[in-house]
Structure formats: structure tokens, C-alpha cells
Simulated assay, not measured.
Amino acid sequence: MPTNTTNFSLIKPGQEEFYNVDVPNANMDTIDGVLKTLQDAISSGASEQDLKVLRDALATHLAEPSSHVYYADDTGTANAKIIAITPVVAYAKGLGISFTNKTENTGAVSLNVNGLGPIPILKSNGNPLSSGNLKTNSIYTVRFNGTSFILQGEGGEYGTATAADVIAGKTIGTEEGLKTGTIPNYSGISPGANGIPSNGGIYADRFEYDVLPPKSGYYDTASKVHQILTNLISSNIRAGVVIPEIGITGTLTAEQLGAFMAATGTVVANTSNNYTDGSGNNVQLGTVVVNVLNFKPTLVVLYNISDGIYTTIYHPLLAYGTNSTANINVSGLRGIKLMGIASVDATGFVMPVSVQGGTYRYFALKI
């Protein structure tokens, strides 16, 4: 609030006003000193000439608008301020006016003094006022620069930051006044949030763990936290398993782990072919073809589902008679050589059986 001079109670704007109070206060003190001198001269019987000099000096000072800051209450609207100050008869460069704002503004503002016409109030950077710059019942000071009133103490330039660039809960000054940041602040979220165990968790369908916190700073949505997991590699993940979150497909096979591999199924002996037995003779037998395995079997057992007889057994260490290459035994026959039609590879096998057209159950093992 304004204060008053000691001798003649002239207005001295207070420190809370948006304005450099040192200049008008010095002016007010000058007026007060002149008036005190005049008072003392009258009391001591000064000459008429002395009094005229003092009166002329005071009149000159009062006639200079830039030497004063006039005060009045606003009686206008939100964006059209109106005040009445008797000494002001024209808009002169340097004219200073303080007023108590009646209504908070909602946009650009003008000031009309003594009906002399509305003059725009601008910020110090030349921009119009933004909504909410002038608060209700607050005192503001403006000075006329020849074309516009400039709001005093409004501040300097603003940067380019917006609410979207500021952490939520913090504020930033802008042309439109204070803005509250909108960037979500996830700082301080501790392990265990959202039900995740503090040291990770192993479940039937997933594994969860806490990523190391990143360094402090700004990250956009394309940023990632880099962490090295030395053993999370394809050769340590079961073959065929895909982890899409990290783009890894497993290559580890049961064979690499030294495990047994097995397969079973049914197949029909649709064809008949000639085979060579251990003595070199040709034998006409039914043929079973299985090519859906993902390993090369070392033991194959087939039996006829209709009679339950194990008709064929293959193992590379089997030998029938004195012929070490006759590794296939067909029920009721001599050993059959693994040659020609008969074969074993990484996808399955071709084996002779006793009955063409029969349905067989097979067991294939890799041991």
C-alpha cells in the first residue's frame, strides 16, 4: 500500500507495487522539501520575491508529468480500465499512473484516463497482456511511452518451455502467467510397485524383474534403459521358444543337454519294396515311412496294432548272424541291412515290416 510524506502527506508508492519505487519516492521527497522551505519562509517573513521563486519552482515540478506517479481506483471492466485523475489533461511521454485493479482481465487490456481515450497496456517486451495478468484488487503501475502504457515490474523475456516440458507439480512462468507442468513424475517408485516382487519373480508363464534405475535426466518415449544379462542368450533357451520382448529365439536342444529324445505315433505300411537280408538275398516286405521327427533315432520299434506283434526292431549295434550290417530284425525273417530303401536320418526313418497295408505303432528313441 502507498505511504505518505512527512510534511504534506504526498503519496509514496509501496514496495509491493510492480514499479521502481526509488524514483517517485525521491520526487515526493523533493516536493515535500520545497513545501517545507516555503512554510519556513512564510514563518520567518520572507520577501515576496523569495515566495515567488519558490512558487514558480513548485509549479514547474507539478507541471512535469514524468516526475510523478498519479494514483486512482479503476472503475472500468475486465479489459477496459477507466480512471479519473484531475491533474492529467493529456497523455505525455513518461506519464506514470498507479491504479487498483477492479476486475481480473481476460485478455488484452486498455486504460482510459480522464476520458482522453483508451490506450493499450503492454508488457515490457511489447506484447499485449495475457488473461489473468491483472489480479482483482491488486495495485499496478504503468508508464506512457508515447503510444502505449507499459506495465512496470512485469518482468523480462520468457523461454520456450511449456507445461508439457515441466515435471507435474512444478510451475513455470509464461506469457500467460504461471503454468503447472504435466510430465508424469515417476521418481521414487520403489521395487515391489504394482505387485512385482522386489527381486523379481518366477511364474508359470513369465519372469519379472526390476530394471536398474537410469541416470537422472530427461528421457523421451523412444529412450531405453540398457542392461546386460550375460546368460540370457539363444543357446541357453530351449529350441523353438521365442521371447518377443527381447527378440530372442531359443536354439538349445535336448540332445545338447544329453537328454533322451523320443517320439511315438501310428503309420500305415502303404507300399511294398525289396530289401536285402544279412545273407545278401532280396526279400519283399511292407514299408513304413516316418519323416516328422526332429532327431535321428538310434532305436526304432514297430508293432502291428491288429495283432500286437513287435514286427521290427532297429538298433545300430544289433547284428544278426555274422553280418554286422544287418541291424534290422523283422519278425520271422533274417536280419535286414540298413541300405537301399531302409534308412535312418535326422527327420525319421524308412523301415521294413512284415505286413503290407497294416497299421503300425512306432516308438523312436535317441539314446
Score class of each variant (00 low, 15 high):
I237E: 00
T171F: 05
V34C: 12
N79Y: 07
Y275V: 07
P184G: 09
I336T: 08
D345S: 09
N20I: 13
T230V: 09
A269N: 07
A342Y: 03
T136L: 02
D22T: 08
T30Y: 13
I97T: 04
G335Q: 06
A222P: 02
T106Y: 08
G169W: 05
Y320G: 14
I85N: 02
F363C: 03
M1W: 04
A163V: 01
K224W: 00
A326T: 09
I228K: 13
N282A: 15
V267F: 04
H315Q: 10
M261P: 00
T182L: 05
G217T: 10
G240R: 03
L229Q: 09
I183S: 06
V288P: 02
K93E: 15
D40G: 10
Q284E: 14
V53C: 06
Q152C: 11
G335R: 02
S44H: 02
G169Q: 02
S306I: 11
V21M: 08
Y91R: 11
N7R: 07
T162Y: 02
A161K: 12
S9D: 13
S272N: 13
D73P: 01
S131R: 10
N105L: 08
T60L: 14
T174F: 06
N20T: 11
T5W: 08
T103Y: 04
A259R: 15
Y140L: 00
N304A: 02
S216K: 12
T60N: 14
V355G: 03
T251G: 03
S190Y: 02
R238E: 13
A46R: 08
P244D: 06
P352D: 09
I228W: 07
G146F: 01
N7P: 07
D73G: 06
V301W: 03
N329Q: 15
S234D: 11
G250Q: 01
L299E: 13
N194M: 09
P87K: 07
N4G: 12
N231C: 13
E16C: 10
G159I: 05
G340V: 09
N294M: 01
R206S: 12
V292H: 11
A78K: 03
Y203W: 12
S66A: 15
Y19W: 12
R238T: 14
T100I: 05
G76C: 02
L229V: 11
I336R: 04
N7H: 08
F149R: 00
